[in-house]
Design a protein around this nucleic acid. Structure first.
Lengths: 103, 103
DNA sequence: TCATATACGGACAAATTTATCCCTATGTCC
DNA sequence: GGACATAGGGATAAATTTGTCCGTATATGA
């Protein structure tokens, strides 16, 4: 949970599993989240070896993040969670309706 | 993640999947965690319909928590996470050694 | 009467996570 | 020069989660 539990980590892994991406692409993809926050999640994923950072020594700077084999080994779990969430969402919606009532 | 991501939730589901238990049994099982915290997690799991609470109208009070079908549907995911964690733990240990260095 | 057991929860503190604000630096185009 | 793009991070605030302390109530047994 420490490795994949961050608020955006599973989403980032999910995106990178489809192909390597530059930071700016990821920032555009998560438009409702500040770049800073995504960078933090990327850094932790990198420290844990779930993703890899490649720096192309060019100007302007060019960086790419790609998923590693260890990161890819989390994808089946992420998909299971996704499917479970999809199937449970209707019930969850009803639960939230009961709880939040106006408030 | 909101449903099963709590610090003790997957552990509680794991225990209840083995059989219904009384709150005091669970408190004894998680001896390093205060009963209050376990109660909070139980309450949330109950609200989300992952566990069920049965009150026996006796004195002294007798309560039992049991896992529901929805809760049971999370068990395969919890097991996958457990297996992934077991297999990744050696690498994780090395990563933590590098990071924490004395500090 | 006092200690134990059952089960629960309010008020608060501590810790952790997430988010915002603003700054660095370099280069291109108008 | 000014606007934009690239990639990044320090300082700090806000929000959430986790944990502690102490209280409720009832009943049993020493």
């Amino acid at each position: 949970m420490e490795v994949m539990g961050g608020k955006w980590k599973s989403c980032i892994l999910y995106e990178l599993e489809k192909g390597s991406k530059r930071p700016s692409e990821l920032h555009r993809h998560f438009e409702n989240t500040s770049p800073r926050v995504i960078n933090q999640q990327l850094k932790e994923l990198e420290i844990h070896g779930m993703i890899e950072k490649t720096i192309f020594p060019e100007l302007p700077p060019h960086v790419e993040y790609s998923i590693t084999d260890d990161g890819r080994s989390l994808i089946p779990i992420i998909r299971m969670l996704e499917q479970w969430g999809d199937s449970f969402r209707p019930k969850m919606t009803r639960i939230l309706e009961k709880t939040e009532t106006t408030e």
